[in-house]
Protein backbone atom coordinates (compact mmCIF):
# COMPACT_ATOMS: atom_id res chain seq x y z
CA UNK A 1 0.00 0.00 0.00
CA UNK A 2 2.76 2.43 0.95
CA UNK A 3 3.98 4.14 -2.22
CA UNK A 4 6.53 6.54 -0.77
CA UNK A 5 8.66 6.48 -3.91
CA UNK A 6 6.30 7.97 -6.44
CA UNK A 7 4.91 10.87 -4.47
CA UNK A 8 4.66 13.09 -7.54
CA UNK A 9 2.62 10.52 -9.39
CA UNK A 10 0.61 10.04 -6.22
CA UNK A 11 -0.41 13.68 -5.99
CA UNK A 12 -1.35 13.61 -9.66
CA UNK A 13 -3.52 10.61 -9.06
CA UNK A 14 -4.95 12.28 -6.00
CA UNK A 15 -5.88 15.38 -8.00
CA UNK A 16 -7.45 13.23 -10.68
CA UNK A 17 -9.59 11.37 -8.14
CA UNK A 18 -10.57 14.59 -6.43
CA UNK A 19 -11.80 15.98 -9.69
CA UNK A 20 -13.65 12.80 -10.46
CA UNK A 21 -15.31 12.87 -7.05
CA UNK A 22 -16.34 16.49 -7.60
CA UNK A 23 -17.98 15.52 -10.87
CA UNK A 24 -19.83 12.72 -9.15
CA UNK A 25 -20.94 15.05 -6.39
CA UNK A 26 -22.53 17.35 -8.95
CA UNK A 27 -24.61 14.42 -10.21
CA UNK A 28 -25.62 13.63 -6.65
CA UNK A 29 -26.88 17.16 -6.06
CA UNK A 30 -28.87 17.11 -9.30
CA UNK A 31 -30.32 13.77 -8.24
CA UNK A 32 -31.27 15.22 -4.90
CA UNK A 33 -33.03 18.18 -6.47
CA UNK A 34 -35.01 15.84 -8.70
CA UNK A 35 -35.96 13.68 -5.75
CA UNK A 36 -37.30 16.69 -3.88
CA UNK A 37 -39.18 17.74 -7.03
CA UNK A 38 -40.71 14.26 -7.38
CA UNK A 39 -41.76 14.35 -3.75
CA UNK A 40 -43.39 17.75 -4.28
CA UNK A 41 -45.28 16.47 -7.33
CA UNK A 42 -46.49 13.38 -5.47
CA UNK A 43 -47.72 15.33 -2.46
CA UNK A 44 -49.14 18.02 -4.72
CA UNK A 45 -51.23 15.54 -6.70
CA UNK A 46 -52.71 14.10 -3.53
CA UNK A 47 -53.36 17.43 -1.85
CA UNK A 48 -54.94 18.83 -5.02
CA UNK A 49 -57.24 15.77 -5.02
CA UNK A 50 -56.62 14.89 -8.65
CA UNK A 51 -58.57 11.76 -9.65
CA UNK A 52 -57.34 8.61 -7.97
CA UNK A 53 -57.15 6.68 -11.25
CA UNK A 54 -54.52 9.17 -12.38
CA UNK A 55 -52.76 9.85 -9.10
CA UNK A 56 -52.11 6.31 -7.90
CA UNK A 57 -50.04 5.08 -10.87
CA UNK A 58 -48.17 8.38 -11.08
CA UNK A 59 -47.09 8.45 -7.44
CA UNK A 60 -46.07 4.78 -7.57
CA UNK A 61 -43.91 5.41 -10.64
CA UNK A 62 -42.40 8.49 -9.00
CA UNK A 63 -41.53 6.40 -5.94
CA UNK A 64 -39.94 3.70 -8.09
CA UNK A 65 -37.83 6.27 -9.97
CA UNK A 66 -36.76 7.89 -6.69
CA UNK A 67 -35.63 4.52 -5.42
CA UNK A 68 -33.60 3.91 -8.58
CA UNK A 69 -31.96 7.32 -8.06
CA UNK A 70 -31.06 6.33 -4.52
CA UNK A 71 -29.67 2.97 -5.62
CA UNK A 72 -27.73 4.12 -8.67
CA UNK A 73 -26.47 7.52 -7.54
CA UNK A 74 -26.53 7.75 -3.76
CA UNK A 75 -25.56 4.12 -3.25
CA UNK A 76 -23.23 4.10 -6.30
CA UNK A 77 -24.73 1.09 -8.01
CA UNK A 78 -23.79 2.74 -11.31
CA UNK A 79 -20.10 2.27 -10.49
CA UNK A 80 -18.06 -0.78 -11.38
CA UNK A 81 -17.83 -3.71 -8.99
CA UNK A 82 -21.56 -3.65 -8.31
CA UNK A 83 -22.68 -6.57 -10.47
CA UNK A 84 -23.35 -8.91 -7.57
CA UNK A 85 -25.05 -6.24 -5.45
CA UNK A 86 -27.28 -5.52 -8.46
CA UNK A 87 -28.09 -9.21 -8.92
CA UNK A 88 -29.09 -9.57 -5.29
CA UNK A 89 -31.03 -6.31 -5.09
CA UNK A 90 -33.01 -7.19 -8.19
CA UNK A 91 -33.62 -10.72 -6.92
CA UNK A 92 -34.83 -9.16 -3.70
CA UNK A 93 -37.11 -6.86 -5.66
CA UNK A 94 -38.42 -9.87 -7.60
CA UNK A 95 -39.29 -11.72 -4.37
CA UNK A 96 -40.67 -8.50 -2.93
CA UNK A 97 -42.98 -7.91 -5.90
CA UNK A 98 -44.29 -11.49 -5.73
CA UNK A 99 -44.95 -11.14 -2.02
CA UNK A 100 -46.79 -7.85 -2.33
CA UNK A 101 -48.73 -9.08 -5.36
CA UNK A 102 -49.92 -12.16 -3.48
CA UNK A 103 -50.86 -10.28 -0.34
CA UNK A 104 -52.83 -7.69 -2.29
CA UNK A 105 -54.59 -9.99 -4.76
CA UNK A 106 -55.03 -13.52 -3.45
CA UNK A 107 -55.36 -12.96 0.25
CA UNK A 108 -58.77 -14.45 0.16
CA UNK A 109 -61.19 -14.08 3.00
Amino acid sequence: MADHTNSVENTDKHEFYKKKHREQMKHQVVTFVMMIAFTLIAFGLVIAEVSAMFTIPIILVLAAVQVLFQLYYFMHMNEEGHQWPAVMIYSGIFAAVLTILALTTITWW
Partner: peptide, 12 residues
Protein backbone atom coordinates in the same frame (compact mmCIF):
# COMPACT_ATOMS: atom_id res chain seq x y z
CA UNK B 1 -57.38 -9.28 10.71
CA UNK B 2 -56.84 -11.96 8.10
CA UNK B 3 -55.45 -15.41 8.87
CA UNK B 4 -54.52 -16.06 5.22
CA UNK B 5 -51.69 -13.54 5.57
CA UNK B 6 -49.91 -16.00 7.86
CA UNK B 7 -50.30 -18.81 5.33
CA UNK B 8 -48.85 -16.67 2.56
CA UNK B 9 -45.90 -15.43 4.62
CA UNK B 10 -45.24 -18.88 6.00
CA UNK B 11 -45.20 -20.56 2.61
CA UNK B 12 -43.36 -17.73 0.82
Amino acid sequence: GNAIIWEHLFWI
